[in-house]
Amino acid sequence: MGLITEIRDSISNVVSTLFSAQDPKRIGIYGPPNAGKTTLANRIARDWTGDAVGPESHIPHETRRARRKENVEIERNGKSVRIDIVDTPGVTTKVDYTEFLEHDMEKEDAVRRSREATEGVAEAMHWLREDVDGVIYVLDATEDPFTQVNTMLIGIIESQDLPVLIFANKIDLDEANVRRIENAFPQHETVPLSALEGDNMDEVYDKIADYFG
C-alpha cells in the first residue's frame, strides 16, 4: 500500500511539474513610478537565473517598456514554481518632462523620456488587461499609499480576479511605514521587503510560491 501511494504521489508530482513547466504563470510587477519594481525584478531574476531584467535608476520612468524575464524557476520547500516576470513601467496619471530636468537632463531628452514613459503606461495598462496571470503590486513604503492610482489599479486587479500580493518596498529606509500600506489595502497580503538590500526575500519567495505557484 505504502509503495503504491508513493508511486502515485511521485506520478502526480511529475504530472504537476510537467504542467507547470509548460505553463509558467505570467506575473506582472506593477506600481507607481520609483517604487522599486525593476530593482525587485532584477533581484528575483538574479537570485534564480543569474541575469538581470533591466537597468535601475533613481530617476522616475527609467522603465518605459515592459520587460519580461521568462521561466524563472523559484524553489520553495521542495516545490518548484515557474513564473515569467513582467517588469512594467510605473503607472501614473501625469507625466511631465520638467520633472526630469531636475535630474540634469537636457530638455530634448526629458521630452523624449516623457513621451516614452506615457507610451509605457499605456502598454502597462494594456498588459494588465490582456497578459498577466497575477500581480505583484510594489509600493514605496516611505510614500503615502492612499493615491488615486493605487486605488484604481488595485480595483482593476480585483475586478479581474487576479491574485495579487502587495510588496511594501524600501523598508531599509527609516521613513518606511509598512503599517500604512497594510491599512490602505487590508484585503490583501502585504509583504515588507527591501529589494535593494535583499531584506526579507525569503518571505517574498514563500509568498510568491504560495500565491502564484
Binding site: 511631465d96 520638467t98 516623457s114 506615457t118 503606461v121 494594456h126
Partner: peptide, 12 residues
Amino acid sequence: PGQYELNLMELY
C-alpha cells in the same frame, strides 16, 4: 510636448 495626462481607466 512632453506633458501628458493619462486616463488610466480608458487606457485599460
